[in-house]
């Protein structure tokens, strides 16, 4: 418990942590302020115009549906047509509709908090290894795995706490904006359930990013090592290897990219069409779900974490 308290004190006392917290709050404030400034309560005239447009759209869709029923439309088109019900909110421009926009806003928030977690985590252990602080600590507690494990555990708990508070505050802020200066939209139980799942997946992603940053910095003994690995991976693999695979017309290239699994995890499902099969989409499409994302991302974090702890256990410390 003493070690946890000490690690928590070290984490909170670090200026980098404080700076990143300020940046996190600042970005949220800017996002929220932008939304407040760009949204308004719809006027009576806007309501009336929207109602007219909904009626017109319903009429157009009815004609299309008849075409589909007579067998003249493509399957894809007819399928999406039945899913697209025109709603008043779709025709109220400049109005923030909570139900319609909160999903994308949560994506942005998760991306920012994940970046926060990654950088704070990498810096937390990287700076300690680089400055000799870890050596000093080990002179007091010569239990390497306990010290590193406590550091990681304390960090993850702290990042989770920040992420939960940020998420609740962020979503609550937009809910208030919707109530005061926009529209809540169609927020039924299913919507809240989906939003809750999105948030949970986002929080797990934040924890994974933090753990990855921590373990990469442990392996590389420096904060920059973690950032370097990510930047190197993005440039060499996500960009370079993707180009090479496209040139040689390799199949299902997206299945080799971590970004695909990130997208699948957060979006629930991603569908791709294999380049070489263009012209016969139905046969060549493939999908990856959140379950694929969970397996790949968990395996990645687990492998890096095991490597980091095994390496730290045996490493000679300067």
């Amino acid at each position: 418990m003493n070690l946890v308290r000490a690690e928590l004190s070290r984490l909170l006392a670090r200026r980098f942590t404080q700076l990143m917290l300020i940046l996190l709050v600042g970005s949220f404030v800017v996002t929220i302020a932008t939304m407040v400034g760009s949204s308004h309560r719809p006027t009576a005239a806007e309501w009336e115009r929207a109602e007219i447009q909904v009626v017109q759209e319903e009429s157009r869709q009815e004609q299309m549906r008849e075409l589909c029923e007579s067998g003249q439309g493509t399957t894809d088109f007819c399928q999406t047509l039945s899913e697209r019900k025109p709603r008043l909110e779709d025709y109220l421009f400049g109005v923030f509709v909570f139900e319609r926009e909160i999903g994308n806003l949560v994506y942005f928030m998760v991306a920012f908090v994940a970046l926060f977690g990654f950088l704070v985590a990498a810096s937390f252990v990287g700076a300690e290894l680089n400055s000799g602080g870890m050596t000093n600590l080990l002179l007091w507690r010569p239990q390497r795995l306990t010290v590193l494990g406590t550091k990681l555990g304390t960090l993850l708990a702290s990042v989770l706490a920040v992420a939960v508070v940020a998420t609740v505050g962020y979503i609550a802020s937009f809910w208030v904006i919707a109530q005061v200066n926009g529209l809540p939209g169609d927020v039924d139980a299913e919507f809240w359930g989906d939003l809750a799942m999105l948030v949970v997946r986002g929080l797990l992603l934040v924890l994974g990013a933090a753990a990855l940053g921590f373990c990469l910095a442990t392996l590389g003994r420096h904060t920059a090592a973690a950032m370097g690995v990510v930047a190197g991976y993005a440039i060499v693999w996500e960009v370079g290897a993707r180009i090479v695979m496209e040139v040689v017309e390799a199949g299902r290239t997206e299945t080799y990219m971590l970004s695909t699994y990130l997208g699948a995890w957060m979006g629930g499902r991603v569908t791709f069409y294999d380049g070489p099969c263009i012209g016969s989409f139905e046969d060549c499409s493939y999908s990856l779900t959140w379950a694929h994302g969970l397996i790949v991302l968990t395996a990645l974090v687990a492998v890096v974490a095991v490597a980091a702890f095994a390496n730290f256990r045996r490493r000679d410390l300067a």
């Binding site: 070290r10 006392a13 670090r14 200026r15 700076a127 300690e128 400055s131 000799g132 602080g133 050596t135 000093n136 002179l139």
Partner: peptide, 11 residues
């Protein structure tokens, strides 16, 4: 114990 040049967190 102190070992060689002790290094502390500067901030």
């Amino acid at each position: 114990a102190i070992v060689e040049s002790p290094q502390f967190f500067g901030n």
